[in-house]
Computed example of a mutant assay.
Amino acid sequence: MRLDKYLCESTDLTRSQARSALLAGEITVNGEVIKKGTHVVRDGDVVQWDDETLAPIGLRYIMLNKPVGYECTLRNSQYPPVISLLDVDKRDRLHTVGRLDVETTGLILITDDGQWTHRIISPRHRCDKVYVATLAEPLPDNAEDLFAAGILLDGEDKPTLPAVLERVDERRARLTIQEGKYHQVRRMFASLGNHVLALHRERIGSLALDADLLAGESRYLTPIEVADLAQNGDVPV
């Protein structure tokens, strides 16, 4: 890794600030002052800034139980970003794996690993997303068949992929989809003339929301969970 990038990965320095620190002779690698940002840092090298040994932040994989009222984007909005709920260093480097709308709760994954994100959300892969929807009206008797056949959403020219609908009770249903179209779950139920009062995501691929996490709480994924999700998202369509 280039030394200037290493400094940005392991400190709060911007790229320009890292260059200034280098030119000022504040950075050493294995005890030698290095002033070039292009210097390559190798495994085992000891990088210090004013005698403080640095280490880059590794890739992070986080599960969060999203509450109502938080955005999954960083755009200017009346709602705070869901990433603001995390108490971690360099939050600005993190992104959500897909999105939940402001009113939807439940499992959201957050990471700084773009390749891992792509393997989970890419349209080329069929990764299950499981939601529980609370509905304004009871479902029609043939709802399971309609969802299994695919539903043509308003404004779309192709039906959704087949989805699995399971009735929980008269006005609650568990829905498993393998896509992530804009407001897809809400639009699918709307196509049946129904309105989603509340929506909660329980699972992505092999990973279920940790039952111990209260709304707004988070935890890091285990290495096994990270690997399992990447594998789950590696099944070509």
Rank of each mutant, 00 (worst) to 15 (best):
L3T: 13
C8G: 07
C8Q: 15
C8N: 09
E9Q: 15
T11Q: 11
Q17P: 07
R19L: 04
S20H: 13
L22N: 14
A24W: 00
I27G: 00
I27E: 00
V29A: 06
V33T: 15
G37W: 14
H39L: 07
V41K: 03
V41E: 03
V41P: 03
D43F: 06
D45K: 06
V46G: 13
T53G: 01
A55H: 12
R60D: 12
M63H: 11
K66H: 08
P67V: 03
P67W: 01
Y70S: 11
T73W: 06
S77C: 07
V82L: 04
V82E: 11
L86R: 10
K90E: 08
K90N: 09
R91K: 15
R91D: 03
V97H: 08
G98T: 10
R99D: 01
R99F: 02
L100W: 07
D101R: 05
V102E: 11
V102Y: 05
G106N: 09
L109K: 13
D113P: 04
G114I: 10
Q115W: 00
H118L: 10
R124E: 07
C127E: 06
Y131E: 08
T134F: 00
A136N: 14
E137Q: 15
E137F: 09
E137S: 15
D141K: 14
A143H: 00
A148R: 15
L152T: 13
L153K: 11
E156L: 06
E156K: 11
D157K: 12
P159W: 01
P162I: 04
L165R: 08
V168R: 12
V168L: 11
V168C: 01
E170K: 14
L175A: 13
G180E: 03
R187D: 04
S191R: 15
L192S: 13
L192M: 03
L192E: 04
G193S: 14
L199H: 01
H200V: 11
H200A: 05
I204K: 00
G205Y: 04
G205F: 02
S206N: 09
A208E: 13
D212L: 13
D212Q: 11
G216S: 13
R219L: 03
T222W: 02
P223C: 01
I224G: 07
A227F: 01
D228V: 10
L229N: 08
A230S: 14
A230W: 09
G233E: 14
D234W: 01
